[in-house]
Amino acid sequence: MKRYFLISAIILTGTELYSQKAEPLDTIFANEHKNVALFFPQPISQGITGASHFVFTHNRERQQHFGLLQAKPGKESNLLVIDAGGSVYSYILKYKKDLSRLNYFIQDTDRIGTEKRDLPDLFKEVEPIPLDIDTHYRNFCAYLLNKKGRIGRLRKRNQGIILSIENIVFNQNELYFVIQIENGSSLDYDVNFLNLSVKTRQKGKKKSMQSIVKEPIFRYKTPVKIKEGQCARLVYVFPKFSLSNDREVLLELNEEKGERDVVLKVSHRHINNPN
């Protein structure tokens, strides 16, 4: 009799677990502390969130089957994913402080449709539209400006103007520099330019210093004017690079029609060890 009840309990438990797995997935929870991984049947072609406080990243250079999701507190949004085969997946995104699930294995049956119909052979197949890379940069830059985190005390002051690098983040073969410009003076500050260059550190009095300006591939919230008592936070995006021991980065802020210029030196250690 006891054996009968034990077998029945096992069957009921297995049936319950199967029914839980069979339930369609419609909502995915994420937060800013952990990466939530989404695994798809085919490599991901595009992935777009409906709000900047949800960030979905995946490898665009070499398409892979998984992507990573993070979130900041805010209203619910949605995620749209299109895989390499044209299958379309859509989910509701919600922020949750404590996560009970970190991995989602998506099934073919979860798709809501396909990107294109099967066409006769006499029609030429149209290549899928690539993801708007600017949208990806904007979403990730906005996420970094909302995220707490510092790489160290990197700041320089001149006549009340404070230039600082809050964070250097590596993501998908790119370096994101989170920068802050604070105007603690009694006059507005007009920005002429903000350049980042790589210089060979001078060794000895007779040796010259070579400088190469690096052009960002994307700028986010670059200020033109900073009023007195206010600050501006922005992000520069560069292709990933590293430095040898005899090189350093110079972040140069130049004032238009003024002399309150600020030059911030960043050692190779910070560049080679980003967050």
Rank of each mutant, 00 (worst) to 15 (best):
N78S: 11
I92V: 05
Y91S: 04
S87H: 15
S90T: 08
N103E: 12
V88L: 09
G86A: 09
E115C: 08
S77Q: 14
I112S: 13
G74M: 06
L99I: 05
V88R: 14
Y104S: 01
L79Q: 13
L99P: 00
V81N: 13
R111G: 07
T109Q: 13
S87L: 12
E115F: 11
I82K: 14
L93G: 07
G74K: 15
I82G: 04
L93F: 06
Q107D: 15
I106K: 14
E115M: 11
E115N: 13
I92W: 07
K116L: 09
S90P: 00
D98P: 00
T109H: 13
T109C: 11
T109V: 15
K116D: 13
P73W: 02
R111S: 15
D83C: 04
K72S: 05
F105C: 02
I106M: 10
T114H: 15
Y104E: 00
S87M: 09
K97C: 01
V88A: 03
G86W: 11
D110V: 04
I92Q: 14
T114E: 14
V81Y: 10
K94C: 03
T114F: 15
L93A: 09
R111Q: 14
K94V: 04
K94D: 01
D98K: 03
Y104G: 00
G86F: 11
A84E: 06
T109P: 04
L79R: 07
S90W: 05
A84T: 10
G86E: 15
S90N: 04
G113T: 10
A84S: 09
G74H: 12
V81R: 03
E115R: 10
K94P: 00
I92N: 14
L102D: 08
V88K: 13
A84N: 13
R101P: 01
I106Y: 10
L79M: 04
Y91V: 00
S87Y: 12
S90F: 00
S87R: 12
Q107G: 15
I106S: 08
S77C: 10
L93Y: 09
R111F: 14
R101Y: 00
N78C: 08
I92S: 07
K97P: 01
Y89L: 06
N103P: 08
Q107V: 15
K72Y: 04
L99G: 06
A84R: 05
V88E: 02
Y91A: 01
E115I: 13
K97N: 03
K97I: 07
K97M: 04
Y104W: 08
L79W: 06
E115A: 10
G85D: 11
G85C: 00
D98W: 07
D108N: 12
L102C: 06
Y91L: 04
L79A: 02
K72Q: 13
A84Y: 01
S77L: 08
D83R: 03
V81D: 14
Y95D: 06
P73Q: 01
R111Y: 11
L93E: 08
L80A: 12
Y104A: 01
G86H: 07
G85V: 05
L93W: 06
Y95I: 03
K97F: 01
L80V: 00
K97G: 03
K97V: 11
G85L: 03
Y104R: 02
P73F: 02
G113M: 05
L79K: 01
V88M: 02
V88D: 00
K75M: 08
Y104V: 12
S100E: 14
K116Y: 12
Y95L: 06
D83L: 08
